[in-house]
Design a binder for these strands. Structure first.
Length: 568
RNA sequence: GCAUCUGUAGCUCAGUAGGAUAGAGCAGUGCCCUCCUAAGGCAUGUGCCGGGGGUUCGAUUCCUCUCAGGUGCACCA
């Protein structure tokens, strides 16, 4: 039983009308330390006793008197404030952490249930740029959080590897193929393929026939034309190699790369099913599902030329995944601009009679822009993800050379810290916020940043290396009742809630905020309380605290997808 | 026009399923390395919580209207 439950128990013992659940909901954490550790507001009881809340609080506090495990319980205005016994508190939290180790923040809510996390999903033959960072990092973290909570997750990279654009690419390549271009594509595929794509789009203006040629080649691709398929495979392969370089830097792994093309042969069955269920309507030659009565705009399922669309593919993907994985949840980490699409898509699945439609969730996030406007690949307004990482690593290398030139394995550390800074920055705020990419912000390493947390972690590692004693939970916990130690312990208690919150709301930033605040508390403790001291009892207790912070910071960073250097 | 998201300190953002004096970081200023990593710590100022109305003992938080900005609205993904 934790302290909050204890408070509820004590309170309900006096206020017998109150259920445990109600009491737990009532309990809050006071805004300031000198008001105690837990508080129960008494406004609700004022009516019942026909006395002012302050008087009720006084009476309740008196009735409770003094209780085991609590230093004191007193009223303060309309609140009954509970002050925990700091020694007991320290003992309970640190012992639990000591026993549970890296599982200190987890619960078994997942129970092995299967959860699909679809994220990143870049388009083949197009640059992997700063706009992709959000889905990639948020998705990766959600995947890790769900794993930690005991789910079996399937990380899917739903590659944008199909569609008319490939008709264009194939047609362009066939028109302009030269040995130089082949070599250039092998060497530096994305920019070269993009050049072809851009040129083709430009030439459509003057050669109207190109549009039909592109459509023709896409049709050929769909029909299994050998030549088209081979080219497509080649484009896909060289692009994926590029993407994997970035994924490797981030340490991201996928279980499946089943992208759009994977579902191309599963479309006719979906069309048939929609037809059978009388959901399709003809409209201007196209087939649509009417959704206006659900407050949505109608969705085009099949174009007038007979080919299918995004929604159709996503329906096919969802049904395939349900059959294949029998998921408990199917999570799509995709930007907010696609909200309407996902609302339509979910509604259609619902109309098809599948009750699992609402196990599919769209985890959306805001849009990244650049200082000079929106991202625009064709206008050259792009920032490549790989460049961001490289610059972050460069900057880190400079700092290391300046402050810690003798550090061993500088290159690895520079990578861990530079990339860690990028990850931390991305996962620091609420997903839904739009933001403007800024080099200054990305390359700032002070204050609430990734390097700050990593630095604090490295500090704990250093202390543990120098400790010279075994660390166990057999310590004098009364050593840890000073303000700084106690604040760290209070913070440690909150880890589980932070992880659970991230899980419930699909918001990694709860963990990001949590670990930065834990690092802050630890740094205060570090400055105020010398750890490696002569007095063995003091040293052992403070080392146990340090060890716990070390474990939690490490796990927190791991859940965000960050590396945890032990020296920096 | 309809839908949706956002609006809190100079800047970037938190604010826990309404509660006690609204918090961090950055930027500014001033301290702290004979001391466990100064990528650190301490001190210091800043707020019509976009605006109006409502519900409530109590609203930054809930409802409603309104203003500002972003995004999306059928054969692209």
């Amino acid at each position: 039983m934790d302290f909050k439950e204890k408070v509820a128990e004590i309170f309900t013992a006096v206020e017998s009308d109150l259920s445990m659940d109600d009491a737990l909901q009532l309990i809050e954490i006071p805004p300031s330390q000198d008001m105690g550790d837990y508080a129960v507001p008494c406004f609700k009881f004022a009516k019942k006793y026909r006395k002012s809340p302050a008087v009720v609080a006084t009476e309740i506090a008196e009735k409770i008197g003094s209780v085991d495990l609590f230093e004191k319980i007193e009223c303060n205005g309309p609140y009954v404030n509970f002050f925990v016994d700091k020694t007991h508190f320290a003992e309970r939290i640190l012992k639990q952490a000591y026993i549970e180790r890296e599982n200190f923040g987890s619960t078994d809510v997942g129970q092995g249930k299967i959860v699909i996390v679809e994220f990143s999903s870049p388009n083949i033959a197009k640059p992997f740029h700063i706009g992709h960072i959000r889905s990639t990092l948020i998705g990766n973290s959600i995947n890790k959080i769900y794993k930690y909570m005991g789910y079996n997750t399937v990380a899917i990279n739903h590659l944008g590897d199909y569609g008319t654009q490939f008709g264009m690419l194939i047609s362009a390549y066939k028109k302009w193929e030269t040995p130089e271009i082949v070599e250039a594509i092998e060497k530096d595929p994305i920019p070269e393929l993009l050049k072809l794509y851009v040129r083709y789009n430009q030439e459509i203006e003057t050669h109207p026939g190109y549009k039909d040629e592109a459509r023709y080649w896409f049709k050929e691709l769909e029909n299994g034309n050998q030549e088209a398929h081979k080219l497509w495979e080649w484009f896909r392969e060289v692009s994926l190699k590029e993407f994997n370089r970035v994924y490797d830097m981030f340490g991201i792994k996928f279980d499946s790369y089943a992208g759009e093309s994977f579902y191309s042969d599963k479309m006719p069955a979906i069309l048939d099913e929609l037809e059978d269920k009388c959901l399709l309507k003809d409209s201007e030659g196209a087939k649509i599902v009417e959704l206006s009565e659900y407050g949505l705009t109608d969705a085009v399922i099949q174009k007038s030329d007979g080919s299918t669309l995004y929604v159709t593919r996503d329906i096919a993907a969802a049904t395939y995944r349900k059959r294949t994985y029998d998921f408990y949840k199917n999570i799509y980490v995709v930007g907010a601009p696609q909200k309407l699409h996902f609302d339509q898509w979910r509604k259609i699945i619902d109309l098809m009679g599948y009750d699992w439609a609402y196990d599919c969730v769209h985890i959306m996030f805001g849009t990244v822009s650049l200082e000079d406007g929106a991202l625009a690949t064709r206008k050259g307004r792009v920032v490549f993800l790989e460049d961001v990482l490289k610059k972050a690593i460069e900057k880190t290398t400079e700092i290391i050379n300046e402050r810690n030139p003798n550090l061993e394995d500088k290159e690895t550390v520079a990578k861990q810290v530079g990339i860690g800074a990028v990850i931390f920055q991305e996962l620091f705020n609420n997903r839904i916020k739009d933001y403007m990419f800024s080099w200054d912000k990305t390359l700032s390493f002070e204050g609430e940043t990734g390097p700050y947390v990593q630095y604090t972690y490295a500090r704990t590692c250093s202390l543990l290396r120098k400790a010279g004693t075994d660390i166990d939970d057999n310590v004098d916990y009364s050593v840890l009742t000073d303000k700084e130690s106690f604040n760290v312990i209070r913070k440690l208690e909150g880890f589980k809630a932070a992880v659970l919150g991230s899980h419930d709301k699909y918001e990694p930033f709860f963990i990001t905020r949590y670990i930065v605040s834990l690092a802050q508390e630890f740094n205060r403790f570090y400055h105020e309380c010398p750890i490696l001291v002569e007095d063995e009892e003091v040293k052992k207790a403070r080392l146990l605290l340090t060890k716990t912070v070390n474990t939690v910071l490490k796990k927190g960073m791991e859940l965000l997808g960050m590396e945890t250097p032990e020296k920096m």
